[in-house]
Design a protein around this nucleic acid. Structure first.
Length: 219
DNA sequence: ATCCCGAGGG
DNA sequence: CCCTCTGGAT
């Protein structure tokens, strides 16, 4: 594999950032609650532009009524809409959840497929959602889940100068070893929530301060 | 680029 | 009021 001193230096810096994150957030992992791969998929679809806490408030009742793909495929759409309304975008989310459930029943025997190509073919599922399902339900990461937190932190930390999620993901995949792709998302998300917040980032108490090129806005 | 969409913080 | 929260489809 061809490499350059600049790329090696970038990976070295990325490794230091990763070590600091692992030390600061030893328990970082997915916060969405689910019992099965299908429930995980539904929870991730619901998490778009919504806090995971709110998703966890609606999923217990949703999964009690429609626990698997077969049940969700037959559910009255209005009922799904009513149950997921607090998460926002409820019509799109309900429609996508049911359409995905039907496709899973018809083409995958009722079980969430563990192939990237099959996941991306599900309505409402793009790389961010597929990456999370692959890592958490299938036990292997084929990429880095780039959500709003990862996007923001990658920019501030100088890990990527891109704005498109797929390009940010490509940059992160080049910077970190494959076995870190899965955990990396949760470390960045945890840090993004606790310290490197979108609005008033807490730079003075940031464990990554010496490694961060972002100009501090707070004193 | 725009739309979908609710809830909470400041 | 404006911004943000684990996006995706048109």
């Amino acid at each position: 594999m061809a490499t350059t001193p600049a790329k090696a230096a970038a990976r070295e810096r990325a490794a230091r950032i990763l070590s600091a994150l692992e030390a600061a957030y030893p328990g970082a992992r997915i916060a969405l609650r689910s019992e099965t791969p299908f429930q995980l998929l539904v929870a991730v679809i619901l998490s778009a532009q919504c806090t995971d806490e709110r998703v966890n408030q609606v999923t217990p009742e949703l999964f009690r009524r429609f626990p698997d793909a077969a049940a969700m495929a037959e559910a009255p759409l209005e009922e799904i809409e009513a149950l997921v309304r607090p998460t926002g975008f409820f019509r799109n989310k309900a429609r996508n959840i049911q359409a995905a459930a039907r496709r899973i029943v018809e083409r995958h025997g009722g079980e969430v497929p563990c192939r990237m190509e099959d996941l991306l073919a599900l309505p409402g599922v793009a790389r961010k959602t597929a990456n999370i399902v692959l890592y958490n339900a299938c036990g292997r990461a084929e990429g880095v889940a780039v959500d709003t937190h990862v996007k923001r932190l990658a920019g501030r930390l100088g890990l990527s100068a891109e704005t498109r999620p797929d390009r940010i993901e490509r940059d992160l995949m080049a910077l970190f070893p494959k076995e870190k792709w899965g955990p990396l998302s949760y470390l960045l998300i945890e840090h993004g929530r606790a310290v490197c917040r979108a609005r008033r980032p807490l730079c003075p108490r940031c464990p990554l301060r010496p490694l961060c090129p972002w100009p501090e806005k707070t004193a």
